[in-house]
């Protein structure tokens, strides 16, 4: 970690989501459902200097992520890394991976899509671009970018 990141205090147990594209930290919190007091410390740093430019960082005390949450982060912050911290030490560090298929975590933004009716199916998207995230509904074909994804996360 760079000196800049150390501006925010270390956490004892929890996660550090690092290398979030600049400006996306609030959206990461939003998709993790952190909008009010969650009863543990959340620190957020935006526009932090890193080796390759600028980034955002989010630290959440006493919280771990499941696969589904990792997939959600990957969709809006594909460059992010998630470090799991135990007793002030990073015990595992992994990059999020953008999946090829996104199932059940985003709803289609097209109100005329059959998946937005009361049908027994999970919304499903194909990831058509991973650099600049674009997903495409398997049912109606509507394409959505990361802005749209944040608004339609389940």
């Amino acid at each position: 970690m760079t000196d800049q990141v150390l501006k925010v205090q270390k956490i004892k147990n929890g996660i550090v989501i690092d290398h979030i594209p600049c400006g996306m930290a609030l959206k990461v919190l939003k998709i993790l459902g952190i909008e009010g007091d969650i009863g543990s410390t959340v620190t957020l740093a935006m526009h932090v200097k890193s080796k390759n430019g600028w980034k955002d960082v989010v630290k959440i005390e006493d919280r771990y992520l499941d696969e589904r949450e990792l997939d959600k982060i990957a969709l809006i912050a594909p460059t992010a890394t998630v470090n799991i911290v135990k007793d002030y030490k990073v015990v595992t560090k992994h990059r999020v991976k953008v999946p090829d298929v996104v199932k059940g975590i985003v709803k289609c933004m097209n109100p005329r899509c059959i998946t937005n009716q009361n049908e027994p199916i999970e919304p499903e998207f194909k990831v058509v671009s991973k650099d600049k995230i674009i997903i495409k509904c398997r049912y109606c074909g509507r394409e959505m970018d990361s802005e749209d994804i944040v608004e339609n996360i389940l």
Binding site: C108, N110, R112, C113, I114, T115, Q117, E119, I121, C137, R138, Y139, C140, G141, R142
Partner: peptide
């Protein structure tokens, strides 16, 4: 033939 988009894909499923 259905008024909603994606209905035929659902039917095929």
């Amino acid at each position: 033939r259905h008024p909603l988009e994606g209905a035929a894909r659902l039917a095929a499923d």
